[in-house]
Design a protein around this nucleic acid. Sequence first.
DNA 1: CAAATGTAGTTCACTGGTGTAGGAAAGGGG
DNA 2: CCCCTTTCCTACACCAGTGAACTACATTTG
Lengths: 159, 159
Amino acid sequence: MGDAVDAIRAVWAQRRPELDTEPIAVVGRILRAARFLQETADAWLSDAGVTRTEFDVLSQLRRSDVPLRPGELTAGVVGSPAATTKRLHKLVGAGLVTREPDPADARAARVALTPAGEALVDELLPRQLAAEAQLLEALTPDQRRVLAGLLRTALEAWE
Amino acid sequence: MGDAVDAIRAVWAQRRPELDTEPIAVVGRILRAARFLQETADAWLSDAGVTRTEFDVLSQLRRSDVPLRPGELTAGVVGSPAATTKRLHKLVGAGLVTREPDPADARAARVALTPAGEALVDELLPRQLAAEAQLLEALTPDQRRVLAGLLRTALEAWE
DNA sequence: CAAATGTAGTTCACTGGTGTAGGAAAGGGG
DNA sequence: CCCCTTTCCTACACCAGTGAACTACATTTG
């Protein structure tokens, strides 16, 4: 019994027995799980006309009660500063976000949600959370807690 | 005490207390961990002049003792058929892979590693595994086993 | 065995993201 | 004050991947 990762490891064990492929058991599965979750989330969000990274930007703005600067958005989301610039262009064009000059620092800008952007997050986020909760029913509540704890331990060591 | 995901959840709890953000504890961390692992792996491999997805193709060929068809490669790696076509072009150009017409099916091709491609995998794979093993030392052996098991359970339910 | 259907793979236009270079403002000594 | 460095962001050229349209071959079916 096993999943695709077990199958890959079994082949390696046969072809190159001296290799210890134990890391693949963890790393390979994290990558596969992430891939699956991303594809699923992207499918839900694309119905609403936003990508997952754009939604991340909107969520971050929703979490803040003050306008944020592009640099702060870049820090909180994956991607380069250039990616943030492009995303903001799109979001401004879609009327979900406003950008105004920052009176305190003329190099920066103050980015904030429009009412439409706020409404979009308020509509999409609960739906997103519910859908994820349903996926996680593959595990028991205890298993979810353990899994989250182990991942936190690893991330604390890495970041 | 907490990581970035805990911080995000704490803000949500304050701003929108009625939302149950428990799924983020698992999903968010899987995505972050995957992101970290990918970036790290990409950095190692780019020294060798291949991307991670190209390396995945090479590894899959190394695992097989017979030539594979492009469709089989697509099935075993993330990405669309079109992506496989592009990757194979690059790998053939780099002299790591050969493609010959399939005598049994004139639509398909038979893709195999060149000696150089084989040598590259044999050099890179152990290094990759060792580096991943080192990252995983953030967890105890028991924790790694539990983590791998939980992820397998989830993946079996999803795929 | 011909026609219809299905399968394998490539091409092409496009998209989202990257890295580098650069402009423009802030800050910190002499 | 003026230079020099640093910070913040953007513009540009580029790259890997995608989806849809397409070609070529295989297979089924009437």
